[in-house]
Amino acid sequence: MAQTVLHKASDRFDVKSNHGESYFSFSFGDLYREDRLGFGALRVLNDDIVFPGQGFGSHPHDNMEIISIVQEGELTHEDSLHNEGVARKNRLQIISAGSGIFHSEYNRNPDTLCRILQIWVYPDRLNGSPRYQQADYTYPSPPDQWQVIIEPLHEGDSAIGMIQQDAWFSLGNLSKGMQIPYPLKKEGNGLYVFLVKGNISVEGQTLTTKDGLGISGSREVVIQALEDSEVLLMEVPMVKMN
């Protein structure tokens, strides 16, 4: 029997600062709710707006898989491994922080906003080798199918984003009226459905833009588009880390 947990967009943490604005689906920074400590290995889902010319100076990370999916604008990355890169709407960025890495990220454009989904997934081991990757994908996604954009590192297709965890992320560009099944790739994994844009029905729940729904105990989930919709699926192990 599937279990679900619904996180409405309006119930996210809303944070404003000089360099931008963020909406946290889960507890982050010094904002804390015990019922919002992630979904399995998925720990952070931040919907960040970075103002023109603003960003985050050099800061450390370790033991975390950090995926940045740009929704608007560009994000420039530099790190202590001497990687440089620009993530944009059809090019995601992955940092496997492993034993430790420092990085900075900025919206270098003086005129336009950068809007990104920043997603943190616990790794399946401690202190791996730090790693940076950019991976291109098709945007908009081909209609009415799932485009895999993240897969486990051990599956080894360098054309796709890879992380140190048995997790798969997929994007869907669903047409109104379509019902598209998603068969989970690994038994025991859960699925977190984040609606980037639109209106869908999943497991008897109606989601509107930026709502999230966690589903566990199911081998297949069917997404029904009530309007043309953009969907991000995050399949993750249901480990409890805290």
Partner: peptide
């Protein structure tokens, strides 16, 4: 986990 301020105070 995470290496900085992101999860420190939550943990």
């Amino acid at each position: 986990f995470g290496g900085g301020s992101g999860l420190l105070f939550n943990e």
